[in-house]
Design a protein around this nucleic acid. Structure first.
Lengths: 229, 229
DNA sequence: ACGCTTTTGTGAACGAATGCACAAAGTCAC
DNA sequence: GTGACTTTGTGCATTCGTTCACAAAAGCGT
């Protein structure tokens, strides 16, 4: 059962998290008319070591040619297929504040396998207003979106206070993958995936390292002025 | 040299990445007037297991009381200090498109140890324009910001095409921590930290799991209709 | 046809992170 | 003051991820 003959089940999470970056690098090569890359080149363009890249790719199958490298188009297709991007995923964005606004207008989604099919907000005052060519809808249209559009992925861009409430509504309607921009922990039933993006958290991690650098240079040479600031 | 007597050097990266979440949870407890929490409660509020939480906290020192728990204020202070948040970090945002706009208006920074001191853009047409109470400045004011404000952290919210260029200018001016929202790999010299936030990447990872769920339910019972869609 | 060069794919060693289980250390009731 | 109870801090085992190093496989020139 665990030993799959097609040797493909169970791609490590760490690998899955890097596949999008490989895909982007491959797209870049393709745009420049390059049809073949070595693991070394692709790794450099993705910001990883070549050994790691090769091990990652080995989990999806054997798509390289020894002595030559990888065919750009073919590898890109295989990664796309593995990530489930051969189809377009409908996405709904909830919360039309500053961030929701920016996300609705972000063009990067469309080019990478996603289609924003709806914008929602709990605030009645916003309903009907057009943002980036789409009307803002009330939350109770979620069921219809899941049924008619096959909506499965929701993006939460509300304040932290309403995030859990909105999340519950998404889950109740049948959405099973959620991208959360609100700075809070979401509780969801089994079978629902949540990923969190938190701007403050990222800055705080940077601050930690920044402080470490400052302390280190202060300890080694408190005299330094130009460089160690 | 590596063996530090105060037993504090070398906090694992995985732990550092979770400290902001603990800090947020603690702030939540404090706001509700709770002065003491157990590792179990704090872990639940942070979305981790209590054993993990305790091991994480043990890396910063021994701030709990056996049989009782942790004093909320004290632990919050210790984590803040470890993350370097007892001071306010000046931050500059580069790229005043949709996303830069939203980030400039985001109030979450100020409450968590950061202060947006400048907005920059390469586009001359935007210079002088006011966004969220700050004027948009040209890139050549970076040196002054580093010298006068002590700027050390920069946020890149430009399109992918100009991100490396902007990054180089930040680094040249002396910025040594960068938060990158552009969907591309940045090359920086040693001593400069980069963290990347990529919306499409996150969605693609969700799509992978979503596809896996769809395939699994299709394989186990292609008959199911209501639930497995 | 054959050896030389290149580059993949992978076994094995290593290191980091997680989870478990319990002794140590404290509080509290009486 | 003493014993029962609670909760932390941590050694240990395990799992997960990365790096190394090289054999196997392909192309190429002659």
């Amino acid at each position: 059962m665990t030993a799959d003959p097609s040797a493909r089940r169970g791609i490590p999470d760490a690998t899955v998290a890097r596949l999008p970056e490989y895909l982007r690098a491959l797209t870049g090569f393709a745009e420049r008319g390059i049809t073949s890359v070595s693991s070394e080149e692709l790794a450099a363009a993705s910001g990883v070591r070549s050994a790691k890249l090769r091990k990652d790719l080995s989990h999806l199958g054997s798509y390289g040619v020894r002595g030559v490298g990888y065919e750009v188009d073919h590898l890109a297709y295989q990664i796309s297929r593995e990530l489930g991007l051969t189809q377009d995923w409908p996405v709904a964005i909830v919360g039309m504040g500053n961030l929701g606004h920016a996300l609705a207008a972000y063009s990067g989604f469309a080019t990478r396998g996603f289609r924003v099919v709806a914008l929602l907000d709990q605030d009645e005052a916003l309903h009907g207003q057009q943002i980036a060519g789409l009307p803002v809808r009330p939350m109770d249209t979620l069921d219809a979106l899941v049924a008619e559009e096959g909506l499965a992925i929701g993006v939460i861009a509300t304040p932290a206070g309403s995030a859990q409430d909105v999340c519950d509504q998404l889950v109740a309607a049948g959405v099973s993958s959620i991208l959360n921009f609100a700075p809070c922990v979401l509780v969801v039933p089994d079978g629902v995936d949540v990923r969190k993006v938190d701007l403050s958290t990222e800055l705080q991690i940077l601050a930690f390292h920044e402080q470490r650098k400052a302390l280190a240079s202060a300890a080694l040479g408190p005299v330094a002025k130009g460089v160690a600031k």
